[in-house]
């Protein structure tokens, strides 16, 4: 068991290192797809913290992704704050939103939380469209977001941005792995499986769940910053309810609480549609059928989480 886990880690590290070479092997449009994969993988992993690990039905996760993107876009375009400085702020604000929005709703039973988070998503998108205070740019959004610079180096090229995204994905993967083997991560699983039993063992459900929401939102905020940079523009349509549904589906289709599962799910739900762009019309029809088929054939997801002893 233990040997296998180490091998899994090694394999992951190896794949990640190999990924660094992608810009040398692919043309720029594919490098851009790879960069989007990294960004959406971080978002999906952040949804997994809340949905897959803590078992809270969050179907409005695009909100936190969006908050991250808008924070970076607004700070960078109006106050000229350097991109990499906006990143911690994006994470912090997304985390605060996650904690604040979830705190009163956490005691709700699964389906009600799901409905409430759908509501948050709808309100968020409407708010961005209605351009409150003239800061969100309405339906057109915000354009002209700058490029990040690291130690005076402008990360302008597609490859440089890819490496930034890829490096941060690596960090997030490490955090997700550590989550498996720390008390906080286990507390999430206790709560997911039996909240009453967990609380009689001293797990403070309210605190742990709020923290999970904040962490998931913070990581989504991080991805939001990267997203804004990658597109150099943000608009409400990138954070609509359908995006939340896709993130939700990635976690369930891939495998709840399973890192390889979520990565595979991201690849299937975000990258494959890019490949079949020419079939645009049939794409989502086939997609819907595939979602049903995967669930019926593999209800636990494509790569379910392994039972582990340690």
């Amino acid at each position: 068991m233990r040997r296998f886990k180490l091998d899994g880690l090694k394999l992951g590290a190896l794949l990640w290192a190999a990924g660094l070479a992608l810009p040398f092997a692919l043309d720029s449009s594919w490098v851009s797809i790879a960069a989007f994969f990294a960004i959406y993988a971080i978002t999906a992993l952040s949804e997994d913290v809340i949905l897959g690990r803590a078992g809270m039905f969050d179907m409005g996760h695009a909100v936190y992704f969006g908050i991250g993107a808008y924070v970076t876009a607004i700070l960078n375009t109006t106050l000229n704050v350097p991109i990499l400085l906006t990143l911690p702020l994006a994470m912090l604000l997304a985390a605060a939103a996650g904690a604040l929005l979830s705190a009163p709703l956490i005691r709700l039973r699964g389906d009600y939380l799901l409905v409430a988070t759908i509501g948050f998503n709808a309100i968020f998108v409407l708010a961005m469209q209605n351009n409150p205070g003239g800061i969100t740019g309405g339906s057109d959004g915000i354009t002209g977001i700058g490029v990040p610079s690291l130690f005076g180096l402008q990360l302008e090229s597609q490859s440089a941005m890819f490496w930034l995204d890829w490096a941060l994905l690596g960090l997030v993967l490490l955090v997700m792995r550590n989550l498996d083997t720390c008390e906080f991560g286990r507390a999430l699983r206790y709560l997911k499986q039996d909240e009453l039993a967990a609380s009689t063992l001293g797990v403070d459900a309210r605190k742990v769940k709020t923290l999970a929401f904040a962490l998931g939102a913070a990581l989504a905020g991080l991805a939001g910053t990267l997203f804004a940079v990658q597109l150099s523009t943000v608009s409400p349509s990138s954070f609509v309810f359908t995006e939340s549904v896709t993130l939700f589906a990635i976690v369930i289709v891939g495998g709840q609480g399973s890192i390889p599962g979520v990565l595979l799910g991201t690849a299937l739900m975000f990258v494959v549609p890019q490949i079949f762009r020419s079939l645009a019309e049939y794409r989502y029809f086939v997609f819907g059928i595939a979602m049903i088929a995967v669930m019926v054939l593999r209800p636990q997801g494509l790569l379910p989480r392994k039972r582990s002893a340690a």
């Binding site: 049939y282 819907g288 049903i292």
Partner: peptide, 18 residues
């Protein structure tokens, strides 16, 4: 798992809509 049915329903929605 209940969530499998939820995702199946979302897939069905996508399929019918498209």
């Amino acid at each position: 798992d209940r969530l499998a049915a939820v995702v199946s329903a979302l897939g069905a929605s996508l399929m019918i809509e498209n």
